[in-house]
Write a protein that binds this DNA or RNA. Structure first.
Lengths: 230, 230
DNA sequence: CCAAAAGTGTTATCGCTACACCCATGA
DNA sequence: TCATGGGTGTAGCGATAACACTTTTGG
């Protein structure tokens, strides 16, 4: 309908975060396309004609992990002319928070993908390193403001695990007494009658995110707000 | 280079904020294109082949205002399939903060554009109302965290003006003693030897944003942070 | 019984919030 | 002289940050 206007390639790139064994991880794929074939990159794909940006991001993520209904957050569009040396491509970046244990290992193997600890990830192609840095920044903001940490943990988790997750996200040791106090005070954790003995002999109580309670509190004007100082 | 992939129309839309006579304003244009010709919309335009997204936003903004080097902030990409009933268009939204007094009135007239108070803006086409709401949310975040308010004021401004701006952005009355205290304490305002007598008989002292001081403070770990409670 | 991780309260400080009156001036 | 908006200080309270020891249990 709109005539005489140039069209562009539009891509989606996903920064896929996970958390395992006390460290924040990224799922990266070995690129199979020229240019830069064989190098590490974010999982991505081109936008189709009849899907929205969000749908496209879900599809791309699903291709690699087999997961649906994952936490996905669009955070920036990248459009420098030569960001991809092969062609002019606009890329819309999303970050995803997934529970590592639930993803499909076979798909990951097929794609030549691998989980890297955030701290020793390889250098990525194009502007993907910038995207990753920006995604972490966004994640930090979200994690303070909304209860998104749970997306990275199993259904049942312990407080030491939860704290360790936050320590990874903010690259900062936190005081366990203060941390427990504030998260428990928020009232959105349900304590279970089970312990996890994987981490210690004594065992740590398992908790679950109480989604109903959270929704209820929201209607009362409650705002999730874990204070993490710089 | 990348074969067999669909290309898309990519547009830029600008939410243009201004501040005048104690109210937050939006610059809107009367659309000249079908569909929805004659209705109010955001200023926008299609992305060209050889310009980045940021450059495109600057160009679009410059077309309507004649201004360059304006504060522009990309905040979201909109990509629902039918957001524009005429065609599939991906739109990358930016918000701009401009000093109303400095823009080019003739251009605005040519474009059939008009400044509206935020509170009585008309209903906009497509998803532009959503964009505006989201832009204000982003502006609120930015204004707490970074000294961006100055972009909306003349070079010289008074503290009552400055406070009034913040009251507009947050739709909330603020305590003048507390507000003055915190902004002055930050040390980024330079008091001038001049008064503005437009607002009152007594006159109010003029200030200027001290950019050098701000840069210097940044290097010392200072972070701008006006606390505005909900 | 020892090592290793889980769990638990209190205190001081700082920052936010609330609050009311005098000042300068032009009309 | 009066009406209008500009400018000023303090005290109480709540939230944050700092801090160390006891508990449990498997090996």
């Amino acid at each position: 309908m709109y005539q005489h206007t140039e069209k562009h390639l539009v891509a989606i790139d996903c920064i896929i975060f996970g958390f395992e064994k006390g460290s924040l991880k990224l799922l990266l794929v070995k690129r199979k396309l020229e240019p830069c074939s064989g190098e590490w990159s974010l999982m991505g794909g081109f936008l189709f004609e009849k899907e929205s940006l969000d749908e496209s991001a879900s599809r791309v993520l699903n291709q690699l992990t087999g997961l649906k209904n994952v936490y996905l957050h669009q955070f920036h569009a990248y459009g420098d002319i030569s960001r991809d040396p092969a062609d002019r491509v606009i890329s819309v970046a999303y970050f995803a928070l997934i529970k590592i244990s639930e993803h499909d290992h076979n798909l990951v193997r097929e794609y030549d993908a691998r989980w890297f600890s955030y701290d020793d990830k390889p250098v990525l192609i194009f502007d993907h390193d910038t995207m990753v840095a920006s995604a972490l920044e966004q994640l930090r903001f979200e994690a303070k403001t909304r209860p998104v940490g749970f997306e990275l943990l199993p259904e049942k988790f312990t407080l030491p695990q939860f704290q360790s997750l936050y320590e990874c996200i903010y690259q900062k040791k936190l005081d366990n007494r203060n941390f427990r106090k504030s998260i428990l005070a928020s009232g959105i954790l349900k304590k279970l009658d089970e312990k996890d003995r994987a981490g210690s002999k004594k065992g740590a109580w398992l908790y679950r995110f109480d989604k109903e309670k959270y929704q209820e509190l929201l209607t009362k004007g409650f705002r999730f707000n874990l204070t993490i100082s710089d």
